[in-house]
Computed example of a mutant assay.
Amino acid sequence: MKLDAPVPGGPCWTELGTSDLEAAKRFYEGLFGWRTETDSREEAGGYTMAYLGEAAVAALTPLYQPERPVAWSVSFAVSDADVSARLLGEAGGRVLLGPMDVFDLGRFVVAADPGGAVFQLWQGRSFPGAGVFNAPGALGWAELLTRDTTRAESFYTTVFGWTVRPSDRYPQLGVGGEDFGGMLAMDDRFPPEVPPHWLPYFAVSDVADSASVAASSGGATLMAPMTVPEGPRIAVLRDPQGGVFGVYEPLTD
């Protein structure tokens, strides 16, 4: 991801809803070197921030609805959550929750695109989003897995004004020409029960080492380390509770 700070339309945050908050904290602290802090306020519901140094990079939360699957979600920065919520509805998406305020931190919306992939809108106030991107342990790429790339492209370019770098294999998504993610068509390799979704990728210094650490901590490798043609080395991993995420080694100039 070339973006190095939250900008309107770009990914600004990622969070995991998990069935075992304490176990997830231990897993990701060991994998990424995060320091975690759980908000002690009752109304915060166990919301836990993850830091690299003093910079917030992600969050871990309990499953506020027990029927929800364990999953990572991606938030996109907007200047007005209410206006963006209206736009996405007009473009064929659905508002699942909100718009609503989170203390003095900002205003958010949980939404789904026309294919069913869930994401969030974040209108930052005192908290704009992640304090670092692309560094080991920080968000560095956001990938949409969808069964209808044409409809998805139309939806997201309408709502966010994204740029799309065309490709038969893997269109890349950007804001103002700065790529932050890609779009992968879900084919027969994906079982019908796997819904369209957003997948965050975290930067790491060594993909193979990260896969090994994840496995030794109770996780699993879903896609073995591989090198993307003319791109980075990547892998897709799963934590012990079932949360799926990607890791990649940033390209050097």
Rank of each mutant, 00 (worst) to 15 (best):
V95N: 02
V95F: 02
V95P: 00
V95C: 01
L96R: 01
L96M: 04
L97H: 11
G98M: 03
G98W: 01
P99K: 02
P99R: 00
D101S: 14
D101R: 14
D101W: 12
D101V: 10
V102W: 02
V102N: 03
V102D: 02
V102F: 07
F103C: 03
F103W: 08
F103L: 15
F103I: 05
D104C: 01
D104T: 07
D104Y: 02
D104W: 00
D104K: 01
D104M: 06
L105P: 00
L105A: 12
L105W: 07
G106Q: 03
G106S: 03
G106E: 07
R107L: 10
R107I: 09
R107M: 11
F108G: 06
V109R: 06
V109M: 05
V109Y: 03
V109G: 04
V110L: 09
A111S: 05
A111L: 05
A112R: 02
D113L: 05
D113R: 02
D113C: 01
P114R: 05
P114I: 08
G115T: 12
G115C: 13
G115V: 09
G115P: 02
G116W: 08
G116I: 09
A117F: 14
A117K: 11
V118S: 01
V118G: 00
V118W: 01
V118K: 04
F119H: 08
F119W: 10
Q120L: 03
Q120I: 04
Q120D: 02
L121S: 08
W122P: 13
Q123G: 04
Q123N: 04
Q123S: 03
G124A: 14
G124M: 15
G124P: 15
G124V: 13
R125C: 09
R125V: 13
R125N: 15
R125W: 13
F127P: 09
F127M: 10
P128A: 12
P128M: 10
P128G: 04
G129A: 15
A130N: 02
A130D: 01
G131I: 09
G131T: 09
G131E: 11
G131Y: 12
G131H: 12
V132I: 13
V132N: 05
V132D: 05
F133L: 08
F133D: 08
F133R: 00
N134K: 13
N134G: 10
A135M: 08
A135K: 11
P136N: 07
P136L: 06
G137L: 07
G137H: 05
A138W: 11
A138E: 13
G140I: 00
G140L: 01
G140H: 03
G140R: 00
W141V: 08
W141F: 11
A142K: 03
A142N: 08
A142I: 01
E143P: 14
L144K: 06
L145E: 07
L145A: 06
L145H: 12
